[in-house]
Amino acid sequence: MQIFVKTLTGKTITLEVEPSDTIENVKAKIQDKEGIPPDQQRSIFAGKQLEDGRTLSDYNIQKESTLHLVLR
């Protein structure tokens, strides 16, 4: 499925993911596309910070959902 990741600069990245993917996985995909190390990424969805060990389905993130990426 496709999800979108919006950065603070307003750029939107499209990722191909599975509901079973962990947040860690997703951060690795963002690193592949953007070169941002996962330890600098904070992902926010529906106002909640997403934890690395959880999966997209844990957070009820579905296709075409938009995550927000904040850098630390």
Rank of each mutant, 00 (worst) to 15 (best):
L69D: 00
I13W: 09
L56C: 02
E34R: 05
V5S: 00
G47L: 10
G47I: 04
S65H: 07
I23C: 02
K27E: 03
K27F: 11
S57E: 11
I23N: 01
T14S: 10
E34P: 04
G53Y: 12
R42K: 12
S57F: 10
E18I: 11
S65R: 02
K29F: 05
E18P: 03
N60F: 07
P37S: 11
Y59H: 02
K11T: 08
M1G: 02
M1C: 04
E16D: 12
R72A: 13
E51D: 10
S20M: 09
L50M: 06
D21L: 04
S57W: 08
D21Y: 07
I61R: 01
E64T: 05
F45V: 04
R54E: 03
M1I: 11
Q40N: 10
Q49K: 10
S65P: 03
L71E: 08
R54T: 05
F4W: 06
G35N: 07
Y59N: 01
P19C: 07
K48T: 12
E18T: 13
D52W: 05
T22P: 02
K33S: 11
I30D: 01
Q41R: 05
T12M: 12
T9I: 07
F45Y: 13
K48L: 12
T66E: 06
R54F: 12
L8Y: 13
K27T: 05
R72P: 11
D58K: 00
R54V: 06
L56S: 01
E18C: 10
Y59C: 02
L15Y: 01
S65L: 04
A46E: 14
K48D: 07
I36C: 07
I23K: 01
G53W: 14
T12I: 14
P19L: 09
S65G: 05
T12Q: 06
N25E: 12
I3Y: 01
T66P: 00
A28V: 10
E16S: 11
K6A: 06
E64D: 14
L71K: 08
S65E: 08
K27Y: 11
Q31N: 11
Q40L: 11
D32L: 13
T9D: 13
L56Y: 03
I13Q: 01
V17I: 04
K11E: 08
Q40P: 06
R54P: 03
D39M: 09
D52S: 07
L8D: 11
F45L: 05
M1P: 00
A28R: 15
E51F: 07
K11H: 09
G10K: 03
A28W: 13
K29M: 13
E16I: 13
Q40C: 13
E24C: 06
V26N: 01
A46T: 04
G47A: 04
E64H: 14
G47W: 07
P38F: 15
L50G: 01
I30A: 06
F45G: 02
T66N: 03
I13M: 05
T55G: 00
R42Y: 15
N60K: 09
L8F: 13
K6E: 05
P37D: 10
K63E: 12
E34G: 08
H68E: 11
L15K: 00
I36S: 06
I23H: 01
A46S: 08
K29D: 02
K6Y: 07
Q2F: 14
I61N: 02
G10I: 04
I61G: 01
G53D: 12
L71M: 11
D52E: 08
T55M: 09
R54Y: 12
F45Q: 03
I61F: 02
S57P: 01
L56M: 04
I36T: 08
K48F: 12
G53M: 10
A28E: 09
I13P: 00
E34T: 15
I23R: 01
F4T: 05
D58L: 02
G35K: 06
I61L: 03
I44T: 07
S65W: 06
I13F: 14
R42M: 15
K33M: 13
R54Q: 08
V5K: 00
P37N: 09
S20P: 03
Q62G: 12
Q49M: 14
E24A: 15
I30L: 08
D39S: 13
Y59W: 03
L50I: 04
L69P: 00
T7D: 05
T22C: 03
G10Y: 04
N60Y: 06
E64G: 15
Q49P: 12
F4G: 01
F4K: 07
Q49N: 11
E64N: 15
I44L: 13
V26Q: 00
L15H: 00
N25W: 10
G35F: 05
E18Q: 12
Q31C: 11
M1K: 02
D39R: 10
L15I: 12
K29C: 04
V17Y: 03
K6Q: 08
T9K: 11
Y59A: 03
V70H: 08
K29Q: 07
T12E: 04
E64K: 08
I44A: 03
S43G: 13
F4I: 03
L8S: 14
S57V: 07
Q41V: 15
S65T: 08
M1T: 02
V70E: 08
E64M: 12
K48A: 09
A46G: 10
D39L: 10
I13Y: 08
E16C: 13
T14L: 09
H68T: 13
D39W: 14
M1L: 06
I13D: 00
Q2S: 09
E64I: 02
Q31F: 15
E51P: 02
A28L: 14
Q2M: 13
G47K: 05
T9W: 14
K27L: 14
V5F: 05
G53Q: 11
K29W: 05
V26H: 00
L71C: 06
S43F: 15
P37A: 11
E51A: 07
P37E: 09
R72S: 12
Q62R: 11
L67A: 00
G53T: 10
R42W: 15
T55Q: 06
A46F: 15
K29Y: 08
K33Q: 12
V70M: 10
D21W: 12
P19K: 07
K11S: 07
T9H: 12
S20F: 09
H68P: 00
G47R: 03
L50A: 02
Q41L: 15
F4N: 03
V70L: 11
N60Q: 08
K6R: 12
